[in-house]
Amino acid sequence: MIRLIRWLLLPVSFLYAGMMWLRNRMYDLNLLKSTYFKFPVVVIGNLAVGGTGKSPMTEYVLRIVLPLSNVGVLSRGYGRKTKGFREVSVTDVADESGDEPLQIKRKFPETTVVVCENRVKGIQQLLTRCAAILLDDAYQHRALKPSFSILLFDYRSLLTARFPLPTGSFRDGLQESNRANCIVVTKCPEDLDLAMKSKLTEKLRAFSQADIFFAKIAYDNVINPAGKAFPKTSLPNTCVLLVTGIANPQPLTEYLLPKVKELRQISYNDHHDFSAKDLDYIGKEWTKISDDKKIIITTEKDMQRFPSSFSARYPIYFIPIQPQILFGEAPIFENIVRKAFRVSEM
C-alpha cells in the first residue's frame, strides 16, 4: 500500500526535483549566499535520505585526524527535542542532543561535539575553540560552503532506479555529486569484484571527477552498555531479538542471520523515539522467545535512545561498526582526509 502511494506521488517527486535543481543553480550562480570559512570545514553527506553510514564514516575520519589536529564536530542533531546551539555532554540523553552526536561524544569524550540547525552559526561559535570542523550531514546545507566534501552512496542505491522524494529516497540528483571532493560507495558486499567496481565508477564519473572509493561494513564484537562482550562462540546457540530504528537495517539483518540460532526482528523508523509503549512491546516480544539462551541486539546509534532502566532489566547488546575501505586503498583515502584537514602524519 505504501509503495502504491509513493508511485501515485510521482508528479510531486518531479516537482520536488525541479525545485531542488533550481535551488542548487541559484547557489551556483551566487543568487543565494553561501558562507565560506578560512579554515578546514569538512562535510560528510549523501544525496539520499539516511542509510549510507554517515556516523561510522564520521568516526572513521575522526580516528584519522584527531591525533593530529583539534577537530570539532557539528551536527544538526536529528531527533533531539532541544533547539539552537548546544554542546553535547557524555551525560546527555538522546532527546537533548540527538542519538548520533551523543554516540560520537561518548566514543570521543575529549572532542568538542555540538549541535545546531544553522550550521554557519554553529561554526561561528566554534571558531576560537577548534582548528577544523567536521559536519556529519550537511551536503545539502548550501548556505555553508565547505572546504572539502565527502559524499556517500549506499551500494544498493546505485544498482536501482533513483527517484526523488517522495516516490524514491533521493533528495538531489546524481549531477549534484560534482560538488564532492571525495566519494565513498558504502555497504559494499565483501566479494565486490573489480568489474563491478569499474562499472559503478564509470556511472559516477559521468557526474563527478572526485576520487572514488568503495567500503564494506566491518562489524565489531557484540557488547553491552557496560562494554562487556558477548562470547562469539555462544551466538550460534542464542536466539536474538533484533531491534532497530535506523533507515536501512537489512545489512545488519543479513550479517546476524547466519550467526545466531534464531533471529526475530522489530524495525522502527530512523531516529525513532522509543516510548514506554514501545519498550513494553519489545519486552513482551523478548519474553515470547521460549529458549533460555536469548538476548536483544540493537545498533550502537539506537542504544543511545534506550533508557538505562531498560538495559538494567533486559540483556541488551549492540554491535559497533566501521567502514573498511576495499581494494587496499585505505592508505590513499586516509591521506586525502589528512590533506583535507591540512594535517600530515607525524
Rank of each mutant, 00 (worst) to 15 (best):
G227V: 10
L127P: 08
E190Q: 13
I217D: 01
A215Y: 07
W21S: 12
R264W: 04
L242Q: 14
A132H: 07
T238I: 14
W286R: 06
V49L: 06
L326V: 07
D95Y: 11
M196S: 08
V73K: 05
S69W: 00
P307K: 07
G51A: 02
A195N: 09
K105G: 11
A312S: 05
T244Q: 07
I319S: 07
E285K: 07
Q250E: 12
D95I: 02
I319F: 04
K105H: 03
K54A: 01
F230P: 06
L257E: 13
T238K: 13
L192V: 08
R25T: 11
E110D: 10
S147F: 03
I212D: 02
I296V: 13
D302H: 13
F207Q: 00
T186Q: 02
R63T: 11
V41P: 04
R25K: 14
P251D: 04
R156Q: 04
L144R: 15
K288H: 03
M303T: 12
K197M: 04
M19P: 00
Q324N: 05
P258D: 14
R23P: 11
F333W: 11
D270N: 07
T58I: 04
T186F: 00
L144S: 14
V120T: 06
S311W: 06
N118T: 07
I289L: 11
G18H: 07
F153L: 08
Y16F: 15
P249T: 05
I332G: 00
N24A: 14
F148H: 15
L144P: 14
E110T: 11
I183K: 07
D270G: 05
A312E: 14
Q324E: 09
L242A: 14
S13C: 09
P320F: 10
K228T: 08
F341P: 11
L68N: 01
F37N: 09
M19A: 15
I5L: 14
Q250T: 15
S198C: 01
Y219D: 06
L47W: 01
D99E: 09
F213N: 07
K277A: 03
F163E: 05
Q304E: 15
R179L: 02
Y317K: 06
V49C: 04
K294D: 00
V93L: 07
I123R: 13
L8D: 08
S275N: 00
G283V: 01
Y155R: 09
D95F: 11
L74C: 08
Y317R: 08
E190T: 12
E262A: 13
S97R: 06
M303R: 11
G84K: 12
G79F: 08
I150T: 09
R142I: 12
S308V: 09
F85S: 03
D280M: 03
P231D: 12
V88T: 03
Q265L: 02
I297F: 04
Y16I: 15
L263A: 13
S55D: 01
P231M: 15
K301Y: 07
R86N: 10
T186K: 03
N24K: 09
L241N: 12
Q103H: 09
S89Q: 13
G72C: 01
Q322F: 04
L241Y: 12
S198E: 10
S13R: 13
T201Q: 11
M57W: 01
A48H: 00
T91A: 14
Y314I: 00
P11S: 12
